[in-house]
Amino acid sequence: MTKEELIALGLTEEQAKKVLEAVKEYVPKTQLGEVEQERDSLKATIAERDTQLETLKKSSGDNAALQQQIADLQKANEEQRKAHDAEITQLRLDNAVEAALLTAGAKNVKAVRALMDADKLKLEKDGTVSGLSEQIKTIQKSDDYLFAGKQQQQFRGFQPGASGDVKPDGNVDVSKMTYSEMVAYLEANPGAKI
């Protein structure tokens, strides 16, 4: 939320500043999810490595076999580290894309995400996603109904199921309208008969 939005809600400028300062202290939910998932993954990795070390202690008799086991475990641990890093990178990319789509006003993040080309998205070191803003703009142009804030098309004339203010023959029942409603109707329908 911006300071202007908070002021529009009825807060004073000083109160809005205090709210914005307090919000900076909180961790966003997406970032918290990343940290929790990384923590759980690291706990599982540590437990697995502890098990591997116990196995090594038990088989410490044959030196050649022990050297081979150590080499195998080092290779497996390196592969696990790479898989873990890739998983965390993908999680950060997903969260950054979701946050950007919500900021852009996406009504359904999954639907908009399905229209995106994931191969063209790349997470940069500073946490931004290259290629994301271009794809969002393209989707907003082609499928603007997926984003909030777009004006819905207003239909003129008789609408089935609408109130009885407008009769099928085009005449308006002015007895049910206020003066301002009548003025607005005449502006919208310059040739209307009252």
Rank of each mutant, 00 (worst) to 15 (best):
L115K: 12
T103C: 09
E98A: 05
K110L: 09
R92K: 15
A106W: 07
G131D: 08
L123N: 06
M116T: 04
I88F: 06
A114W: 05
S130Y: 06
L132D: 01
A111D: 15
T89P: 01
Q80G: 13
L91M: 15
A111P: 02
E124K: 10
D119S: 13
T128C: 11
T128V: 03
A99D: 11
Q90Y: 06
K125Y: 04
A86W: 07
H84G: 09
N95P: 06
A118C: 00
A96C: 04
L101V: 02
S130A: 04
G105E: 07
G131T: 03
S133I: 14
D126C: 00
L121H: 10
S133V: 14
L91N: 11
A106V: 00
L102E: 15
M116F: 09
T103F: 10
A104H: 10
G105M: 06
A96Y: 00
T89G: 08
D117G: 05
G131E: 03
L132W: 05
K125H: 10
T103Q: 13
D94F: 08
K82A: 13
R92G: 03
S133H: 14
L132A: 02
R113M: 10
A111E: 15
A83D: 07
N108C: 09
E124L: 02
D85T: 09
S133F: 08
A104F: 06
H84C: 00
S130E: 10
A111S: 13
K125T: 12
A86H: 08
A104D: 04
V112H: 06
E98W: 01
L91K: 08
V129A: 03
T128M: 09
R92N: 01
E124H: 06
A99P: 08
V129I: 03
A114P: 00
L132I: 05
A83K: 11
R92C: 00
D126G: 00
E87S: 12
M116K: 05
G131F: 07
A96E: 02
E87G: 09
D85I: 01
A99S: 15
V129L: 01
K110H: 07
A100M: 00
N95T: 01
L91S: 11
D126S: 03
K82G: 02
K110F: 02
N95K: 04
T89M: 11
D117Y: 02
A100P: 05
D119R: 07
A106C: 10
L132H: 01
R113I: 12
A86Y: 04
I88A: 08
A99M: 01
T89C: 08
R92I: 01
A106Q: 09
L102N: 15
L121D: 13
T103V: 14
K120L: 08
N108K: 12
R113T: 11
V129C: 04
